[in-house]
Amino acid sequence: MSAIQKAPNRPLSTYLHKRPNTRLVALLALPMTWLVGVYIISLTLLLVTAFWFIDPFTSKVIPGFTLENFVNIFTVPAYFATSMRTLGIAIAVTVVCILFAIPLGIFMAKIARPWVRNLLAVAITLPLWAGYLVKLLAMRLTFTEEGLFNWLMAPFGISGPGFGIPVTILTLAYLWFPYMALPVFTAIRQLPLNLFDASADLGAKGWPTVFRMVLPLITPAIIAGSVFTFSLSLGDYLAARFVGGSTQMIGSIIASNINLNPPVAAAFSMVPIAFVVMYLMVARRTGSLERM
């Protein structure tokens, strides 16, 4: 009885209770206004700016329509080479991360004792939060002329690779490795035990089981991880700037043009977006994004 008497006192609750769609709109209104109104609009404006040009005399941005900025990406040899180099570096970083994440994941999930497993899980997660720039600085200290790497290798007569593309790849792999290692480890741990039994019963030893059973089943996790390693590497330019010697990446071109020639920077921003959106589409189709 009291509930019935109370009902008129809560007109809003009563109203909303009957209308799930209104509730949904009320929940989404603010976040969508922000994400679309601030972020998507900014991305769209960036695309619009990519068609504008710079007045050669006043170097002011002139609204208009030109495809020249986009054509330059393909026709200026230095620009095109940079795009391809960046793509290559991003793929190399992803491959390095996968190559280390799989053995690590297998060890953690299937061989290590529980306390070792927990310890390793923490050990892998922690550096994720040590700070991007801090890790970059750490890699720079490790690979400088008088750094740890040369000191360790000196007895073997090896001197380090110096700053260049290999150290850039290594640094990016260092930065993004947890993004690959964690989903791969989780996926391997979640594989049902009886699948391993079945594989053993059918005569498969360790490695055949890994290649023919584990790998196909954890592919979605690898894809989810690679979304991060690939797209984060693709857009990075500070690693190239601080440990890459004279290496230029797409980000370097964007960053150096944003004040001098915003339309060129804007056009170049579309390159990593295009790569990443294509990658996300594929990843979404495999259902891997649910894991993120």
Partner: peptide, 17 residues
């Protein structure tokens, strides 16, 4: 998911242009 440089440039472009 999008590279930081793209997000940064998008905001910077909106703010300054």
């Amino acid at each position: 998911a999008l590279p930081g440089v793209v997000t940064g440039v998008a905001f910077s472009n909106t703010y300054s242009n």
